[in-house]
Each structure stands twice: as structure tokens, then as C-alpha cells.
Simulated assay, not measured.
Amino acid sequence: MNTSISTSAPAFTENSIEARIDAYDWPSLARELDGFGCAVLPKLLAPDECAAVSGLYCEERHFRSHIIMARHGFGRGEYRYFNYPLPGLLGGLRTALYPHLADIANRWNERMGIEERYPDEHAAFLKQCHEAGQRRSTPLLLQYVSGDYNCLHQDLYGELAFPIQVAILLSEPSRDFIGGEFVLTEQRPRMQSRVEVVPLRQGDAVAFAVHNRPVRGTKGSYRVNLRHGVSRVRSGMRHTVGIIFHDAR
């Protein structure tokens, strides 16, 4: 359903996307996610792929809704949720990233005492979402201009929520925009919040915890709560694509 190729997206083969993602050092990425709640996948997309995806923003036919953040108290800026079928590049990324992240998510749930386990393939997980009434696509394309920012938040959308998501920076810092850093905060029980500012370049992706992750304590693992956002863009225009693995009600 989500692997059709749009004429506006870069040409690719599903195998090339899978090979690109499989080539990352996933044990190292898993350790980063375990330790800090986020991990960077450098140069996931090439500059021409970034330009092709960001260029979709003005093409209404690709999207199911358009959100102006200020109207909802989300910050300043705007974003659009993609329709199904997704453009081929995004569908391929979503399908290929999921199995690597599902292994981490299942281990997290075991450590946090959560019974839910995620299937090996993304199609099987989407089937669970649709059976639960969550049928609307969630990948989104975000656009920020000078003065825009995204308040700290969590992308849950329903009872079924995959605990890790991926954001890919499509613009080049310093050249296309200044400011607009990706920010992650973590609140541990009876402690002050910890802030992680993630430096990204064009084409880099960051995988991060959506809601909770386990942290090892003296009496075993416990849950910490995370939120993410984007600091104020000081000049220029910033585009990001967000890959969320569960669908919405």
C-alpha cells in the first residue's frame, strides 16, 4: 500500500533503500538509543533526494491535511500529512527502517514490563493499527521560516503507538537556514529534565523515542518520559520529513 513510486520522488529500487539502511552499524545505533533516547543516521538521503521530497510541499495531491501550528498552540510553522499511497522513497524508508527499530522497541518493552510486542514486518504492524481503527497515514512534511519553532510534544495519535520515530533534515544548516535545532527532553522521576540538542546536516536522520524509554536503575529498569521539538529558526527556511510508524485515528 505504501510503496508506490511517485513521479515527483527520486527514482530508487526497494533493494537500494534496504541496502542503504542495512549498512548502518545498528548495534551502535541501538546503544545510542538505549543511552540517550536518540541516534543519528548520517547521510540517509542524498541532496537530490532531499530536494525532491521538500519540493513536494506545494503539491496538494500528496497530502491529506495541512496544519498551521499556531492555530493549535503547537508553536509556529506548518506541516502536511501525506496521503496513502506514500511517495515511493518515503514508503520504502518506512518499510526498511521498521524491522531494525522493532527489535529495539521490543527489547525496551520487555525491560519496562510492557506486554506488547511488535511484529517483524511493518505491514503486519499497520494491519494491527487498521484493525484498531487507526487508518490515516502519519508521515509528514514540515516547513519552518524565520521565527518558527515546534513546541515539545509526543506524536501518539491513538492507542497503538510505535515507540520510536525518525526525522530527516532536508535542508542544509547555515546555507538554507540558521537556528532550528532538533531538541529532545527527558524527564526522570524526582530529577530535573535532561536536554539533548541533536546536530544534523542535510540528509541526516535522527531516530528517537516517541514517549517512553527504559533506564536502568539500582532496582532494575524504569520508564522515563520524552518529548521532542525544534528550536526557533532565526533565518531562512527549514524542511524536515517525519516518519512515524503507526497510523492515526
Rank of each mutant, 00 (worst) to 15 (best):
L126F: 12
R111M: 05
L33V: 08
G179P: 06
L97C: 12
Y98E: 01
E159V: 05
R216C: 14
E116F: 01
H100K: 15
T3W: 04
L156R: 11
A70V: 07
W108K: 12
F63W: 08
K127E: 15
Q192G: 14
I21M: 11
A51S: 14
G147L: 07
A23D: 14
A209R: 00
Q154Y: 03
A19C: 05
R201V: 01
L56P: 04
Y118L: 02
N109W: 07
E32Y: 11
D247G: 10
G37I: 03
V197L: 03
H122M: 10
G203C: 02
N212G: 01
N2V: 07
P47K: 09
R20Y: 04
F208M: 15
I17R: 06
G77Y: 13
E181Q: 10
I114A: 06
A70Y: 01
S171W: 03
R232D: 01
E32R: 04
V233N: 04
N225G: 05
R234G: 12
W26T: 04
P85H: 05
P42E: 02
Q143M: 08
Q187S: 13
G236H: 00
S193D: 05
L33P: 09
P10W: 10
H153S: 08
Y157C: 13
P42D: 06
A167M: 06
I104E: 07
R94N: 12
Q143I: 00
R234L: 15
L86T: 06
S6K: 01
A30I: 01
M112I: 13
P85D: 06
S171T: 15
Q165D: 08
V224F: 12
G147I: 10
V241A: 03
P99E: 13
E110I: 08
N225C: 12
C50F: 13
I17N: 02
D34M: 07
K219Q: 14
D176E: 12
Q165T: 05
R136N: 14
P85S: 14
R71N: 14
S174G: 00
W26F: 11
A161C: 14
L141P: 08
